[in-house]
Write a protein that binds this DNA or RNA. Structure first.
Length: 222
DNA sequence: CAATGATCATAC
DNA sequence: GTATGATCATTG
């Protein structure tokens, strides 16, 4: 086990494969990191642990976890049946300054271009330290997946542009959904209102729906 | 019991 | 507030 930053895709995948079968407690111990009792007040702990274990460098920036490799790292909690237990956060949704929207220039496009999925047991009755890491999967959307993603993105962005943010909810979209993403429901940010004026609303984020990540994992592991 | 809306920690 | 990492927990 090493925490050096990988020099190429092969090194990263090799490191990721070495984690297969290990428990979060073992990884934490190797890096002298304390395991919290639960994730209630530490929801990003698993993702940050795996970042450390794989040598991710883009700690606090709006760029892929491995900038040189253009790869985004995502841990995904799974059930005993290997189905995702949670949706997957992708990135913040822009609500203002929406001129000249080009999908290929959007943060969402760049985040999804190359994703290294690390499935991890996520059922709450398994103590955090005992949860086992699964086989990694380096995924790139197929042309058909891109088509659906782009369609969802466009429809959502169109509504935002038209000042219909308050009419959008998590039900929109086949693959991508828009949901609040903030410290709490009191947080506000600027957005376009129905008459075109600037309004205050809750910040939103793009998420991958579980039915999509489910088929994604099934296609690869079944 | 899945899904939607709410929330937690931390850096800047 | 924004962006990183996500999961919690109420609701339908």
């Amino acid at each position: 086990m090493q925490n050096l930053s990988p020099n190429n895709q092969q090194e990263l995948l090799h490191s990721a494969h070495l984690l297969t079968g290990a428990t979060l407690g073992e990884i934490a111990q190797a890096f002298e990191i304390c395991v919290p009792d639960n994730l209630l007040k530490n929801k990003g702990w698993v993702g940050q642990l795996i970042e450390t274990a794989l040598g991710a460098t883009a700690k606090q920036q709006a760029i892929p976890d491995f900038p040189e490799l253009d790869i985004e790292l995502k841990t995904i909690p799974i059930s005993a049946q290997l189905t995702p237990l949670e949706t997957t956060y992708i990135t913040t949704a822009p609500l203002v300054n929406l001129e000249q929207l080009v999908f290929e220039e959007s943060p969402l496009y760049h985040k999804l271009k190359h994703v290294l999925w690390i499935p991890i047991q996520g059922e709450r009755d398994i103590p955090l330290a005992n949860r086992m890491i699964g086989t990694p999967l380096l995924w790139q959307p197929s042309s058909e997946q891109w088509r659906l993603i782009k369609q969802d993105w466009f429809e959502i962005m169109e509504q935002i542009t038209l000042g219909r943010i308050e009419y959008l909810n998590a039900k929109h979209g086949e693959i991508i959904q828009l949901r609040p993403k903030a410290a709490n429901s009191q947080v506000t940010t600027a957005a376009i209102g129905q008459d075109g004026a600037v309004i205050q609303t809750r910040p939103r984020g793009f998420y991958l729906k579980t039915n999509f990540t489910n088929t994604l994992l099934q296609e690869h592991f079944l």
